[in-house]
């Protein structure tokens, strides 16, 4: 399971970074990106799903 942030959709709401700082970081402009290669350890799967479900811009997706 991997998370990815579509940079063309992210507007810097920072919901993902607040919910799952283990999976997402933000750049100097406040836009989010997946940490490392985006791989989600099993114990963080629920947080990954919440990050997807709370993004106002529908910018985050999960790739199985």
């Amino acid at each position: 399971m991997k998370v990815q942030v579509d940079q063309s959709k992210c507007q810097g709401h920072n919901r993902c970074y607040a919910i799952a700082p283990e999976l997402f970081d933000v750049d100097d402009m406040g836009n989010a990106f997946a940490i490392g290669d985006g791989v989600v350890e099993p114990h963080l799967a629920e947080k990954a799903r919440l990050a997807v479900a709370n993004c106002p811009e529908y910018a985050i997706s999960i790739v199985e």
Binding site: G12, N14, Y17, V26, D27, D28, M29, G30
Partner: peptide, 9 residues
Amino acid sequence: RILLPAFSP
């Protein structure tokens, strides 16, 4: 973009 860094988390 000028202002974003000043208001980043």
